[in-house]
Design a protein around this nucleic acid. Structure first.
Lengths: 128, 128
DNA sequence: GTGGTTCTTTGATATATGTCAACGAGCTGT
DNA sequence: ACAGCTCGTTGACATATATCAAAGAACCAC
């Protein structure tokens, strides 16, 4: 183990993700350790998905025609208040896992499958 | 959106994962919403990975021969105290992403690539 | 057994997170 | 403009998490 690079300054607090493109970084590999920046970005996205309610929301959106639904449809199904669901959807929005669009009264959140698959690709270890 | 099934009782607190086998559930799919139990298990594993330091630890282990290292090797590289690194490794251990083995004075943590890949498979949406 | 090394656990603290009630903002109809 | 619906934000609170120092546990060498 080379100790030539230090990662001690990896911040725990979440800087707003400026890069919400589907691809955060290449697959984890035997060849080299992930950079501190990429570790941040990846952890950010994984943390957004690391909550049961948000997993449900993503799964529910996936089953919808057009992969979208509004807050008022989702809140009753997950059994939480609309502000809380709105909070969770914002978490997913901030890392690019969903997009939002207002149509009349309703705000529709649409799943971005490419963003989910990008995470999948990173974890599909380039080895073994 | 059918409201026939309620998910309101999805607990936020983390019951210890009794099933740490690599496969937590099938890929997310258009066909059906994930079960509350599977959402819990998946979120548990994603949360374990949703922290920059733990992403680094996983990546570092992957680059090691035998995909293993001891706490005393990892702590200096991530720039955290040994108790803190031990805490993070336990998180990964509790969801089956790493295994541990004592050899003499040292405790070696080994990455379990199948567990990482299992998560990848779930997120590789069965659709789109 | 004594002492030294590595690792984990405990206790303590600061920060982050999930949740909701209450209010505010945006839109649509009349 | 007014009323009504949907949604987001703010404030408040409880819980969870990351971190370290200090103490304990496991192991080895002598």
């Amino acid at each position: 183990m080379s100790t030539s690079c230090q990662y001690g300054d990896v911040p725990k607090a979440l800087p707003l993700l400026e890069d919400t493109s589907p691809i955060c970084c290449g697959p984890l590999s035997e060849a080299q350790v992930i950079s501190a920046d990429d570790a941040m970005g990846l952890a950010q996205r994984l943390k957004a998905l690391g909550e049961p309610t948000r997993v449900l929301l993503v799964s529910m959106l996936l089953t919808q025609p057009g992969r979208e639904a509004c807050t008022c449809e989702l809140a009753p199904v997950v059994g939480l208040s609309e502000p809380t669901v709105s909070h969770h959807l914002k978490q997913l929005l901030d890392v690019g896992l969903v997009s939002k669009e207002r149509r009349g009264l309703n705000v529709y959140y649409r799943l971005e499958p490419d963003s989910v698959k990008a995470i999948s690709r990173v974890l599909d270890l380039n080895c073994c």
